[in-house]
Design a protein around this nucleic acid. Sequence first.
DNA 1: CCGCAGCGTGACAACGGTGTCATGCGTTGT
DNA 2: ACAACGCATGACACCGTTGTCACGCTGCGG
Lengths: 346, 346
Amino acid sequence: MSPATQASRSRATIRDVAALAGVGTKTVSRVINDEGNVSPAMRERVRSAVVALNFQPHQGAGALRRGDQKTRTVGLLLDAVDNPFSATINRAVEAVASRHGTAVFAASSEDDPERERTLVDVFTRRRVDGLLLTMIGQDHGYLQAEREQGTPLVFLDRPPVGLLADAVLTDNHAAAVTATRHLVAAGHRRIAHIGDERRIATARERRRGFVDAVAEAGPGVLATHVDDLRSEAEAEAAVRRLLDLAEPPTALFTAQNLVTIGALRALHGTGRQHEVALVGFDDLPLAGLLQPGVTVMAQDPARIGTLAAERLFDRLAGSTGPEETLVVPATLVVRGSGEIPAPPGR
Amino acid sequence: MSPATQASRSRATIRDVAALAGVGTKTVSRVINDEGNVSPAMRERVRSAVVALNFQPHQGAGALRRGDQKTRTVGLLLDAVDNPFSATINRAVEAVASRHGTAVFAASSEDDPERERTLVDVFTRRRVDGLLLTMIGQDHGYLQAEREQGTPLVFLDRPPVGLLADAVLTDNHAAAVTATRHLVAAGHRRIAHIGDERRIATARERRRGFVDAVAEAGPGVLATHVDDLRSEAEAEAAVRRLLDLAEPPTALFTAQNLVTIGALRALHGTGRQHEVALVGFDDLPLAGLLQPGVTVMAQDPARIGTLAAERLFDRLAGSTGPEETLVVPATLVVRGSGEIPAPPGR
DNA sequence: CCGCAGCGTGACAACGGTGTCATGCGTTGT
DNA sequence: ACAACGCATGACACCGTTGTCACGCTGCGG
């Protein structure tokens, strides 16, 4: 009645149910797990005792005794659960997990290697059945021990380093090459790569793709680089500085979603959005409604999440094939900003 | 070595550690829990055995035995983890939980009452220490039983129905009134309310705020309603139909983020974005870069998540004050679309 | 020199369930 | 009629850990 009524009755146990129904605990166990070999009369008595006491079996206790040791829980390590890319993965993983009666621990590493290790520990101490990982750390060797102890691992979005494991990735190099070629094809000769933190494997791959595509275009094309941008605000400031140069780039390749947003703020803030071309990595919800529309290399985070989760549950079901890396295609979505031609000029 | 090397060694237990260190299990327990009253020599022996075996204590087993029964886990029920509003809440909750050494189960109800109940069951079977809930169902009475068994409850974004509980909410009615008045003040006399599903409490409140503000404006103002839009695409189609009317509304109040996006697609798709005013509920990442900028009533999901989580941990720490509803203010962000004046006319 | 407090240590039971196995009963086959 | 079997049921140990308690040892005061 009063708010202080916490823990008034404590939670019912299987013994309480057994006592109320006048049966042994094992019979209750059989009923709640639908094991069969229980007479209809018993089943009914147990059922009503369960309802009367509002009994909920204690998963953890069951898992402890059960041989298979399944907690029906998986850990999902993301850079940040509120980044739209990661959030989409989260949702996809949840959908697959849910079909397997499994709950998901999602956590944000904030791209901090120390926090990342802590979170893996948090997961393993809770005995998750499997791990889905977006890693920042330089060496994932310590995860080998986890896998040897029976916890399957699937890497998401970024490849494993220092161990062999399943992974689901975008081909970031190829996608960056395509994006950059698109700008070169529009005639641009001064192109800037605006990038995320180089500690992140995908950022390095995208950068490498950009560099390769520029090299392939020949000596007439000049590249500028800004790297290690940690936020929208940093990206905006960096692009504003670029635009102030005497010979500013005529095209931008913005290599991550938050960076793209920052760059767009800079372009629109200075009114030069129709003048400087832009291709972004990752799609944005309103990209098509801006003037000009934002051309992007769109990854498919839902598919990445789905495939990774399915792989994990395959492993949990006993699949023992070799480790595989699945590559999910990215698509160039043409909307206008990437097709702005280079200004005529010497 | 080979991929089939799964579960080669099984996980070390406290007994294995004790055996290797040549001590009793209780001593190992004391060391890993920093309980004191262990000689330095022992501590060292145990420590190195722990490292040698890569021992990780089994949280669940410990929680089982420990009196307090804390699993250091909370459940967070959202409509969809990939909705930006919910994702921001998720992140804020995670930050608070993390400070309390607690992991978060986040799950998407998809606004389906049945799934919602299932997920609450999933949480309670795993003995979460507390629940943070965004509920769709019409009666939350069944949660009373949970609370009586010692699980604190905090409602997020939507109020509890059928029981008294802590809640952290936006004042949706007041915010909708403010948003609607803003359109009336710009001279509009034909205003449409484009709304989310009416099963959702917040959608009803926003609708009510709209209706009240229109009534307050006097008989000269005509309101149209479209409700129960379940997606961006439905919202876009609905707005396109409205715009095709002989006397279309001159201003739109779009009462949820996905609905706003759909409406924007319709306006920009028909080229009428400078002609029809719009105020949206919930902020959008690129809202300031569209032409015109999108005026919104911005909620503060990060604050909602933070306050709710803090409240939950207060309760877990034993706070027994009366249930409270905290109201988080929303702010009108003026960017252009809401200030388009009504066309002059008869 | 003895008693007692305090510390370090480990044996044991218990947390809430489930696997294993034994038991008692009714049924069936010969 | 009796063995053999299958089914329903419950006693009991056990999953991995920690609370409780008892024990032995050291050091100190009387």
